[in-house]
């Protein structure tokens, strides 16, 4: 029977730099992420959590070993495949990276437009619904400059989730949020996992989230512990 794990990492090694400055960041990583699960990556700063996250999200080229994302091998993947897989993946950054000239609604619509969906009453309704879920129903026409840090992060979460991604990769998504908002976001990700089978991998230092995780993976100095 074929393995249906949306993310499967085998014998992954990764280096930064070249020549004498070349430094290994990941050592023989083996990891599977089960469909619909919430996996939390923890570890000290510089341990390789984010590097592993970016490799799983095909945001960085795989150098050695194997990373299979939604059944596709990322080692040697071409640009077309990379772009296709990125469209099926929701990414939430620690910095919100909202487009400053787009309103909250327009930023969220960008998450639908990438799938070729034009603005229609249906897509607007979907974007509005997502903003409502993150508690920003009354801020749809606000530019990022007029939103607080937490509100911007929630717009970024809405943008990542509006396209119903199969995998969500999140790097410290609750760092800018207060306790309640942070927990609400993580609960929403967990609910998505249960309702749609969305798998989430999250890097966090937030101990409140660990209770909600299906699996906690610890990395130290580039190795899974």
């Amino acid at each position: 029977m074929a393995n249906t794990d949306p993310i499967m990492v085998r014998g992954l090694n990764h280096w930064f730099g070249q020549g004498e400055a070349r430094k290994q960041a990941l050592f023989d990583i083996n990891l599977s992420v089960v469909k619909g699960s919430l996996t939390v990556l923890v570890g000290p700063s510089g341990s390789g959590k984010t590097t592993l996250l970016t490799l799983m999200g095909c945001l960085r080229d795989v150098q050695d070993g194997s990373v299979r994302l939604m059944g596709h091998e990322l080692l040697g993947a071409n640009r077309a495949l990379t772009e296709t897989l990125r469209r099926r993946t929701g990414v939430i950054f620690q910095a919100h990276n909202l487009h400053d000239s787009l309103t909250a609604m327009q930023n969220v619509l960008m998450g639908l437009q990438v799938h070729g969906l034009r603005r229609t009453p249906e897509t607007e309704a979907a974007a509005r619904h997502m903003l409502q879920l993150v508690g920003l129903a009354d801020r749809t026409d606000y530019l990022p400059a007029n939103l607080s840090g937490g509100q911007k992060q929630r717009v970024a979460v809405a943008r990542a989730l509006v396209g119903s991604p199969e995998v969500v990769l999140a790097d410290e998504p609750t760092a800018a949020l207060d306790r309640e908002a942070g927990l609400a976001v993580v609960r929403m990700l967990k609910q998505l996992g249960q309702a749609r089978g969305t798998s989430t991998v999250m890097v966090t230092h937030d101990p409140r989230i660990l209770d909600l995780a299906d699996r906690i993976v610890e990395i130290d100095e580039g190795r899974l512990t």
């Binding site: 772009e83 990125r86 099926r88 993946t89 910095a95 990276n97 909202l98 487009h99 998450g111």
Partner: peptide, 16 residues
Amino acid sequence: DHLSEYATFKAMGYPR
């Protein structure tokens, strides 16, 4: 000025 936004769009799967 918009490199980080463009990088975000790249991460979302927008083509060149």
